[in-house]
């Protein structure tokens, strides 16, 4: 298996094997070292049926998981650069320490996208900013920034 193959599988595995990611219906795409996450619209994501608007919790979870996916991808790319990844390659899941969500616009009942920017990645902690949008990349519906604990240490 090529380095890139094992790495691509990692993101497919994420959507396939983690129940909560499947519950939200998230899909990840990688271009170079950048992950774009997609949350396809489904009625289960609605919080306010009168507007209607996406549930802030669904949008929040989407932002958080996008941060985790980008950090996992970065870990895999760095590990792959050091040598071929084994078929059962499974890096430790980054865990959120704290996150602040800013809700900027009401989430419409349509597909949502998100990307994460790793502002600093240390040995134990990574600081990440994540942005979500729908119709236009420049019109964010929500943004988040938070710290994630890397590796298995708790």
């Amino acid at each position: 298996m090529t380095e890139d193959g094992a790495h691509s599988d990692l993101l497919d595995d994420l959507s396939a094997s983690i129940p909560y990611i499947r519950f939200l219906g998230l899909v990840f795409e990688r271009r170079g070292d950048e992950i774009t996450a997609l949350m396809p619209y489904k009625p289960d994501l609605i919080g306010n049926p009168l507007l209607p608007a996406l549930h802030g919790g669904a949008t929040g979870a989407f932002l958080e998981i996008t941060g985790v996916a980008q950090l996992l991808s970065d870990t895999a790319l760095a590990d792959a650069a050091r040598g071929e990844l084994p078929d059962d390659y499974a890096p430790a899941m980054p865990r959120p320490i704290d996150i602040t969500f800013d809700y900027l616009r009401s989430g419409k009942p349509r597909d949502t996208y998100a990307r994460a920017i790793v502002q600093r990645r240390g040995r134990r902690v990574a600081n990440v900013r994540i942005e979500a949008w729908q119709d236009a990349r420049g019109k964010l519906i929500a943004a988040a920034h938070g710290n994630f604990l890397l590796g298995a240490a708790g």
Partner: peptide, 17 residues
């Protein structure tokens, strides 16, 4: 709603919601 299959712990996002 499990976020970590190895431990069975719920996803952080579920707690957020």
């Amino acid at each position: 709603l499990v976020g970590d299959v190895a431990t069975g712990v719920l996803g952080g996002g579920a707690i957020t919601a």
